[in-house]
């Protein structure tokens, strides 16, 4: 072994789905699979489909609980979503899972024309959203929300944790039109149980107040936002956190109300800064005639490196340390 390796151990790319949970953090196993299995008990219309990624999207939990309501479509994403549309036409409520890259990039036409245009209740479940794998651009759906935001009728949900996912699933099933869920799978951190919070489809929620800075965040970046807010307390910086898990339709009323003052405004998203939460917030501000600066924390507009997730999150600015440093720099 080289001395360099002994002195500075290089982190390794982990399994395809790397965990972004911190060591020792409270987690919940496969919250999506369990929530879907439970929702299916209450709603006999619910069925599950996947394109050869059942184990990797926690759909296998549902398949085990309801084998007669699970449909394996093979590694065929166009068939997956076309068939999901057909099942919805037959009166069922399908949840169809694959990776976000394949849903957004390979199957867009099928989701758009067969599901969204007829406004069918098909629920698209996309694994590995944003930067949640170290496998590089083939697996990193850094632009999935940008792709999907232009699609009429589609509701987009970017959950933070196991609480969000468990509470979102029955609401997605109950809402009439199509939805896209940015899935977090495996051992998913449990964060929002510490707050007076409930997931409500279409609503943003203020998780904590703060006088100096306001974070508007979605997805796993809400977890980082809360951690960064706690870290900034030590620097005597008081940070509010607004969690906006529904990207579309966006809760402009809540977010604009929080951005009305002169606090430093920061958006945080596990997605490219093009076409995601930052631009959603920015366009809402402009349309309301609000002129103010917004600092984006998000992935750069480039194809990302492969590697270990902590390395990449730090490199691209999603880590707590990078967020804290950015806020302190902004505050001068």
């Amino acid at each position: 072994m080289s001395t360099a390796a002994v002195n500075t151990p290089r982190l390794k790319t982990s399994a395809m789905i790397a965990s972004f949970a911190d060591p020792g953090q409270k987690t919940e196993p496969a919250p999506f699979g369990h929530a879907l299995a439970a929702a299916a008990e209450a709603d006999p219309r619910i069925v599950g489909l996947t394109a050869d990624l059942g184990k990797y999207t926690d759909m296998h939990i549902f398949a085990k609980a309801h084998p007669d309501r699970f449909f394996q479509m093979g590694m065929a994403e166009q068939l997956l979503f076309g068939a999901a549309a057909g099942m919805a036409e037959a009166g069922l409520v399908p949840f169809a899972s694959t990776y976000s890259v394949f849903a957004a990039r390979r199957a867009y036409d099928f989701i758009c024309l067969d599901i969204a245009e007829p406004n069918l209740n098909v629920n698209i479940v996309g694994g590995l959203p944003g930067l949640t794998t170290g496998y590089g651009p083939s697996h990193q759906a850094t632009e999935d929300m940008a792709i999907f935001r232009g699609m009429p009728n589609l509701t987009i949900v970017d959950p933070c944790d196991s609480v969000d996912i468990a509470q979102a699933v029955p609401q997605l099933a109950a809402s009439d039109g199509p939805t896209y869920l940015r899935l977090l799978r495996g051992k998913v951190p449990t964060v929002l149980d510490e707050y007076d919070y409930e997931f409500e489809l279409g609503k943003a929620k203020v998780l904590r107040g703060g006088n100096d800075v306001v974070f508007v965040s979605s997805g796993l970046m809400t977890m980082r936002a809360l951690q960064a807010a706690a870290a900034l307390e030590k620097h005597k910086v008081d940070v509010a956190v607004v969690h906006a898990p529904t990207i579309k339709p966006f809760d402009e009323a809540t977010v604009l109300a929080e951005l009305a003052g002169d606090r430093l405004a920061v958006t945080l998203e596990n997605h490219t800064v093009v076409g995601g939460l930052f631009e959603t917030v920015a366009s809402a501000l402009v349309r309301a005639g609000v002129t103010r600066r917004v600092v984006p924390v998000g992935l750069p507009d480039e194809f990302l490196d492969a590697g270990a997730l902590p390395t990449l999150h730090s490199k691209y600015g999603l880590s707590v340390e990078r967020i804290v440093a950015k806020v302190l720099a902004e505050l001068g």
């Binding site: 076309g82 036409e89 069922l92 067969d114």
Partner: peptide, 24 residues
Amino acid sequence: EISGGSLGHGLTIAVGLALGLRHR
């Protein structure tokens, strides 16, 4: 029954419809 036009969609929907109707 469906909106055609983007070719190559119909049979994928038909598969889901056949699965769904049989399931019901």
